[in-house]
Design a protein around this nucleic acid. Structure first.
Length: 602
RNA sequence: GCGGGCGUAGCUCAAUGGAUAGAGCACCUGACUACGGAUCAGGAGGUUAGAGGUUCGAGUCCUCUCGCCCGUACCA
């Protein structure tokens, strides 16, 4: 309403110049501070055609709009020039009324829908079985799940897909180590972490041997290099034998594989359930492995792939990319091989239009090669693939590594975070919690803990590293998930104590005095929700929504501090209760897009 | 070497090419007989790595230089 009124007033005042400005709506933006108004129009572009300085143009426009009268609809309360800008003030009561009505009838949230919905597959998480699931993997899940929710809010038909790394040489390493008997027997709890340890143990001597080969090669010592290669081969041979046993379906190996794989899948399912993350489809490397091998044969025959140094490659020089290996010289396939087969299946079997991969930035080249290879194979859909790269999770002490034990396994993380939250909550008694059962305590603690973890992972832009500091994320007074939930708990507190509830589709009373800066800032902020959702989808980065929530929570806190709700005069009290309810609705929905559930009290 | 990412307050991060570059943490000073102090208000803290360029306007775009990180065929 207000926005439309501003555009209309500007169009009239600009006259012939309106066309020269282009899309007026795109030029309008909120000023840096509420005191300056609700929407501002910059006059720089008019300087040439009007042959005047922008501040003069702004003053002229403001006067013209003032003279024409602001009465139309009453949405614009005031217009004034401020430097090179024409600033418009919305009528606060009309704004609040419009916001509440839109939230009540659903149009506020329906407005986030795009005009061009697509069928989109978002692949994320991709955990490896037989390895530990740690904090670093949490960022992928948080980002991927948020993108699924954001794309759905935009009206897209989304298939959330997981792709389990349950096959290949790393699995063989783990199984080999178990076969040596050195790993002992599995513990009752933490069996997947135990498998991860087995993998690390098997990998260690290989890594050492590999390093020796590189050192000899760097020193150009041919004799030493041959010896190092021989040593590596000796260590690797029995592991390769396990992989062969897997590929050929040796019964004993398969039995061990199936059992240990299932432990991991069960563990992943528990993690996703805890995080509230759901997938529509599960892919497994083990199911595309054979298909990948056939695909290599097929395109080798067609001449798309060629032999090189005993291996099979895709020559991507035309795309300015290094050669991509699709089959090793020992005949086994690779990650890229499987991804080629998988990409084909995604398009052919799921009818999707856009294929999104949420994978770490260190694999950027892999995806460039994957998409280029698909194009070379004649897959026009290659252009509909997109890699969302996100940076690493670091610890305050530096890079985390599962080898030296600094990567915190998720089951351990969970207890550490919930313990920290519980301690914080128990430090101060609250009447709301007096009658809580242990189940209620636990459920609330888990929600706060997950809010802290997900918000911590999402508030930083995907191109930047995240530093995971358990103290900072759980026990601060500041920019955390707990602060967001605290705002909602306060709103719930007000509502508990208000005798009657106020409907969002009620009339906002006139003449209540509603409309101070704190109130106007909060209303104005909530109106930005739709634009933030759209931007999060365009950039495939949920961090803007996280910032929207944090800024919103700060606006609410200021409102809460300055504007008593329950003790205000009846008319003002009603308006403020409505604002609180609208804030609650918008925050709850925005949190949902980040995969975070609110609490009534904490 | 080549390709990509990053460089903003002591630290961690924001800023569709627009107004005086903003938050949180840490530090300092204040605040309510009040709906939740996990709060709020204020202070201090900046040559946006450096140098050119484009633009009415650059932290943002272009060129070069410096620094850190990642990748660069038989790992995933």
């Amino acid at each position: 309403m207000f926005r439309e009124a501003v555009i209309e007033a500007l169009t009239r005042a600009l006259g012939a110049d309106a066309a020269a400005c282009g899309d007026l709506g795109a030029l309008l933006a909120p000023p840096p501070k509420v005191e300056m108004g609700d929407l501002a129009f910059p006059c720089f572009a008019l300087a040439k055609s009007r042959r005047a300085a922008p501040p003069k143009i702004a003053a002229d426009l403001a006067a013209a709009i003032q003279d024409a009268g602001l009465a139309a609809g009453g949405a614009i309360a005031e217009v004034k020039a401020l430097g090179p800008y024409v600033n418009f003030f919305a009528d606060p009561v009309a704004e609040l009324q419009g916001l509440c009505r839109a939230v009540a009838d659903g149009s506020f949230f329906a407005a986030t829908r795009t005009a061009a919905p697509q069928r989109v597959m978002i692949e994320f998480s991709q955990p490896n079985t037989h390895k530990v699931f740690h904090v670093g993997h949490l960022r992928n899940v948080a980002v991927g799940d948020a993108l699924v929710r954001i794309f759905r809010a935009r009206g897209h038909d989304v298939v959330a897909a997981n792709y389990y790394g349950d096959f290949g040489i790393d699995v063989a390493k783990c199984l080999y180590q178990l076969g040596t008997g050195q790993q002992g027997s599995p513990p009752a709890e933490g069996r997947t972490a135990w498998l991860g340890e087995a993998y690390v143990a098997a990998n260690a001597p290989l890594a050492v041997a590999k390093k020796k080969i590189e050192e000899a090669a760097a020193a150009e010592d041919d004799e030493a290099k041959q010896a190092a290669i021989a040593a590596h081969t000796a260590i690797f041979a029995p592991i390769r034998a396990v992989l062969t046993a897997l590929e050929t379906g040796d019964p004993e190996t398969m039995a061990l594989y199936r059992e240990t794989r299932q432990w991991c899948l069960d563990e992943f399912a528990r993690i996703y359930a805890w995080l509230g993350v759901q997938f529509d489809h599960d892919f497994f490397e083990s199911e595309v492995e054979e298909e990948g091998a056939r695909l290599v044969d097929e395109y080798l025959a067609k001449g798309v792939f060629v032999e090189s140094r005993g291996a099979i490659i895709a020559d991507l020089e035309a795309d300015g990319l290094p050669v991509a290996l699709v089959r090793k010289s020992d005949g086994s396939s690779l990650y890229l091989t499987w991804d080629l087969a998988l990409a084909r299946r995604k398009f052919d079997e799921f009818g999707i239009e856009t294929s999104i991969y949420v994978v770490g930035a260190e694999q950027t080249l892999h995806f460039q090669q994957l998409f280029a290879a698909l194009a070379k194979m004649g897959y026009a859909r290659a252009k509909d693939c997109r890699h969302i790269a996100y940076e690493l999770v670091m610890l305050p002490s530096g890079k985390m590594s599962s080898r030296n034990g600094t990567a915190i396994p998720l089951h351990e993380l969970r207890t550490r975070v919930t313990d920290a939250i519980r301690a914080k909550m128990e430090a101060e008694a609250r009447p709301e919690r007096a009658a809580w059962s242990e189940t209620q305590w636990q459920a609330t603690i888990e929600r706060v803990a997950i809010a802290c973890l997900k918000y911590g992972m999402l508030k930083v832009g995907t191109t930047r590293r995240v530093i995971f500091d358990i103290e900072d994320w759980t026990n601060p007074e500041g920019d955390t998930g707990a602060y967001l939930l605290y705002s909602l708990a306060r709103i719930a507190g007000i509502q508990r104590k208000a005798e009657q509830t106020v409907a969002l589709d009620a009339d906002v009373p006139a003449g209540s005095g509603f409309g101070n800066d704190a109130e106007r800032a909060l209303v104005g902020h909530l109106q930005r929700y739709g634009a933030e959702v759209a931007r999060a989808e365009e950039t495939c980065d949920p961090s803007g929504l996280a910032a929207f929530l944090f800024d919103g929570a700060k606006h609410f806190s200021r409102f809460y501090q300055e504007c008593p709700v329950l003790q205000a005069e009846p008319a003002l009290r009603k308006a403020r209760l409505m604002l609180a309810a609208a804030t609650q609705a918008v925050f709850t929905r925005a949190l949902d897009l980040l995969g975070i559930e609110p609490v009534e009290a904490m």
